[in-house]
Nucleic acid binder design. Structure first.
Length: 487
RNA sequence: GGUCGGGUGGCCGAGUGGCUAGGCAGAGGUCUGCAAAACCUUUUACAGCGGUUCGAAUCCGCUCCUGACCUCCA
């Protein structure tokens, strides 16, 4: 098995050969969602990208421990120490307990992930389930002199840390510029330095989500949870840490600082960042009002959508772009992906009907090599997909009897489809023929075949056109009639 | 203002010095009772200007446009 995997590492801004520390084990940590509202499509892109990465690592034979957290506490509105907890705020709005909010949106998140056919992570820890680990870590950081307590809250001392470590290693910014250009925020008076960030925040009396600590009854800062949980499940120094690009400058920068201040080690060897989903060139976000909820996309119920698209179409659409590129969302782009995806799956459905010959008119070995080369080059799924369409052409040509294939090559084709279409890209057939409706359609198609055999084309056309109006498309071949659903 | 990206044919989107990306759309053809599908062939391209080079979409410089981050955000 070819394992010359190359990964782009944000730490070094270079593509590097992937060398896990303890092969075949791989530790992978990805920053998960904050479950105070529905995930939107942009969030989904990140998790689908890391699903591809996870799946390919598994395919290469690595034993991956994939940790993806659920943030269910700690976020403040506007990062002000006085701000409301997002969960408490949402709870007030929906007249629910904060933990009801957490439960509701965690379930919603899992439902969406399942629809997108992403594999569940090995461990999905929650921030509220790891308060004591976070407190322990804050203690360590204080012991090492990189944090200080004021009025029951604890802050990380960025200026002190940056004297011995490279605070802005992920973004390459100059600390002086940051000091000058960081916006003045209210509620920062008690911090020593304006770049300092909260590790522990003393709760105001009305604050519902609160825990005891050596400093005050309060709640943890946002960044510390990921550091504490990644450390607990993956150790001081694990292989890959990932997340959306928008997290690099703040969240990940602070994670690195906390982990180094605590453990004297850079927490991860490779940092991977996925790019944003855009709409009309601008980043999709809730505040901009251009965000789609996955369900809106599936059922087409949104002013910017002319129709709905299935989860697999959306997944395929996302995989047709590289994870480090922005991807622009549009109806036309989705339409194109929808047709491309159907074309791919139609060819896959023909696999078991192919007849072998004594020779092959194509070189499947070199296509196989190119598939691996594409994925080994920093998970280049668009190139992989272009190779798969090469295979689609071959499958269709064999089916049409225009190209010959040996039984051995057919086996390789079936294996490649299984490995890359299903295992790595994580696509699945949106089944239709197994259910009752499918049996009924099969029977109607059979009636039409009989009508055709009797040259009763009036009846056969009536059936074909009628089914089409109901969203079922027939395809006549020399030997049989197949059908598929259309949108 | 700072940091880091981008500008590729009608649309989406790969590609980083010479060799077809791919999908969708368009055109012609084959097949077919018709339709669809499929297959074959095929048109349209690298923001602008200058430079390096035998050769640049790809490297360098300048200009224009644009995005992300710097504030919670995948």
């Amino acid at each position: 098995m070819n394992k010359n995997l190359i990964i782009y590492n944000t730490l070094t801004r270079k593509k590097e050969s992937f060398k896990p520390q303890n092969p075949p084990l791989v530790g992978l940590y990805v920053c998960g969602p904050t479950v105070y509202s529905d995930v939107h499509l942009g969030n989904c892109r990140t998790f689908i990208s890391f699903d591809l990465i996870y799946r390919y690592l598994l395919h290469l034979g690595y034993q991956v421990r994939y940790v993806r957290n659920i943030t269910d506490a700690g976020h403040l509105e506007g990062d002000r120490d006085e701000g409301d907890d997002k969960f408490a705020k949402k709870a007030k709005l929906e007249k629910l307990e904060p933990m009801e909010i957490v439960q509701k949106y965690t379930i919603g998140f899992h439902d969406i992930m399942r629809l997108f056919n992403t594999l569940p992570p090995s461990i999905e820890p929650t921030a509220t389930g790891h308060i004591s680990e976070q407190i322990e870590m804050i203690k360590q950081i204080m012991n090492h002199g990189f944090a200080y307590e004021i009025n029951g809250s604890v802050y990380f001392d960025v200026e002190k840390y940056s004297k011995t470590s490279h605070y802005t290693i992920l973004t390459n910014r100059q600390l002086d510029d940051l000091l000058v250009n960081t916006r003045e925020l209210s509620g920062q008076d008690e911090k020593k330095g304006r770049l300092d960030f909260a590790l522990w925040i003393k709760a105001k009396p009305e604050h519902i989500m609160r825990w005891p600590s050596p400093w005050s009854i309060g709640f943890p800062g946002w960044h510390i949870e990921c550091s504490a949980m990644s450390h607990k499940y993956l150790g001081d120094h694990f292989d890959i840490h990932g997340g959306g690009m928008d997290l690099a400058a703040t969240h990940h920068t602070n994670e690195i600082a906390q982990s180094e201040a605590c453990n004297h080690k850079q927490p991860a060897k490779y940092w991977m960042h996925t790019n944003m989903l855009t709409v009309n060139g601008a980043r999709m976000s809730k505040s901009a009002g251009n965000g789609f909820l996955p369900m809106e996309l599936f059922n087409g119920n949104h002013p910017l959508l002319k129709r709905g698209y299935s989860p697999m179409t959306v997944r395929f659409f996302m995989l047709q772009a590289h994870y480090r590129s922005t991807l622009d969302f549009s109806n036309d782009a989705l339409d194109a992906s929808d047709k491309g995806y159907k074309r791919l799956m139609n060819a896959v459905a023909l696999l078991n009907k192919l007849k072998s010959s004594n020779q092959s008119d194509f070189d499947i070995q070199s296509i196989q090599e190119r598939c691996y080369a594409a994925m080994n080059d920093d998970f280049n799924s668009p190139i992989l997909i272009s190779e798969l369409f090469e295979i689609v052409r071959i499958i269709n040509s064999i089916y049409d009897g225009k190209v010959q294939a040996t039984e051995e090559d057919l086996k390789i084709i079936r294996k490649l489809i299984q490995h890359f279409v299903f295992d790595v890209l994580g696509l699945k057939e949106e089944e239709h023929q197994a259910d009752d409706m499918g049996k009924i359609v099969d029977w109607i198609v059979q009636l039409r075949t009989e009508a055709k055999a009797n040259r009763d084309f009036v009846t056969s056309d009536k059936i074909r056109i009628g089914l089409q109006a109901l969203g079922i498309q027939l395809k006549d071949n020399k030997e049989e009639t197949t059908w598929s659903k259309i949108n």
